[in-house]
């Protein structure tokens, strides 16, 4: 009898210890994006990314937890197709630690999405459209500006929200820097301001810039600015909302032999939520600002319809129309995407 009680006590203690250990496990979530695409300028070769037909666009596995009373950490591993093959690879999309105990300032170290403009800081599943804007793809590549480095963001004491972010990072980005010297460090600064115009309407304005040595031994740079209006009424805001956002990037890659060494462009888009789980979006893009006859100017229009049954699943259909100067045929594409999250509840950014 005694041994039975002793055994039960040990078992109970074991369960308690197990429960306590689980309490320290990081929050885990998996997001994945499935895609079906059909486009006049999209390859039929399934080793290409993107390609016509079905594909698993990306899966993101995220672990998030406090490290101790001073730090929190996030590890987001991306599973996606390696271009040129049908194989998938795992890469650390963002793995960083962040301070939680310093007043007015947040320090960050690791590999993370750089604070260049607004769109570059988004994960693929949070993109307003299925694809990134053309100018972002042209200047920053498919993965965006995402490197190992450090960051400091300071909340400026003002009557409105004003934040200054300064970052130093490794210059590995293929399309912008690809510096041959790993000791060379790039710099980035971002000044973000947000005003509550009314209880329902906000205006956000940001200006950012980055600079660093490139593979041609010169200095590449990108300047960006963004402007966003968001309207969501305090009464009835579950059922209607409106966003208008515009982002401009202007990059210079001296030493690059192509016509696009100096390239600028903008993307402007609106989103109108017309029911609890439905919204429509429209986007206009122009690549070639400032204008230059040497650059193949591009105009793109996109329309998107989204249905999100819950916070954890969404379905979107997008149509794109692309006109490229000097190209007789205009491109059309249609894409259908599903977006699913399992695991820990996501924290939403504004």
């Amino acid at each position: 009898m005694k041994s039975l009680i002793f055994g039960m006590t040990l078992f109970s203690l074991g369960l308690t210890a197990q429960a306590q250990t689980k309490a320290f496990n990081p929050d885990i979530s998996v997001n994945f994006l499935g895609l079906f695409e059909r486009g006049t300028n999209i390859s039929n070769d399934r080793t290409q990314v993107p390609h016509n037909g079905f594909s698993l666009q990306e899966a993101e596995v995220q672990f998030l937890s406090d490290v101790d009373p001073y730090l929190k950490a996030s590890a987001l591993l991306s599973v996606s197709q390696n271009p040129g093959t049908t194989d998938f690879g795992i890469s650390p999309e963002e793995v960083f630690l962040e301070s939680t105990s310093i007043p007015n300032i947040t320090l960050k170290a690791g590999k993370f999405k750089m604070a260049l403009g607004k769109h570059n800081q988004l994960h693929t599943h949070a993109f307003p459209f299925i694809d990134a804007p053309l100018i972002h793809q042209a200047l920053l590549g498919d993965e965006g500006l995402n490197d190992a480095g450090i960051s400091a963001s300071v909340l400026i004491p003002a009557h409105w929200y004003s934040e200054m972010i300064v970052q130093g990072f490794s210059l590995s980005n293929d399309t912008l820097y690809k510096s041959t010297n790993s000791g060379s460090i790039g710099g980035l600064a971002h000044f973000k301001n947000l005003f509550d115009l009314t209880d329902d309407l906000t205006l956000e304005f940001g200006a950012s810039g980055t600079e660093g040595n490139n593979q041609w031994g010169k200095t590449s740079s990108v300047f960006g600015s963004d402007l966003t209006f968001k309207w969501r009424p305090a009464e009835g805001g579950k059922y209607k909302a409106f966003i208008w956002s515009t982002e401009y990037l202007n990059g210079n890659r001296p030493g690059m032999s192509t016509d696009t060494a100096h390239l600028g462009g903008l993307a402007t888009w609106i989103q109108y939520q017309f029911a609890e789980r439905w919204w429509a979006e429209g986007r206009y893009e122009f690549v070639g600002l400032p204008y230059s006859s040497e650059i193949p100017l591009q105009n793109k229009q996109s329309a998107l319809l989204a249905f999100f049954p819950s916070e954890f699943s969404g379905f979107r259909i997008q149509y794109d129309h692309l006109m490229t100067a000097g190209k007789a045929v205009q491109d059309h594409a249609i894409a259908f995407q599903y977006n699913v999250t399992i695991g820990a509840h996501p924290a939403h950014a504004y």
Binding site: L155, L194, H348, Y350
Partner: peptide, 21 residues
Amino acid sequence: AKGTQDPHFIEAKPSFMLKMS
């Protein structure tokens, strides 16, 4: 949150961060 809003779905406005700071 305001009294007319669903408390499950409040947007994390940066101006709220300013208040909490």
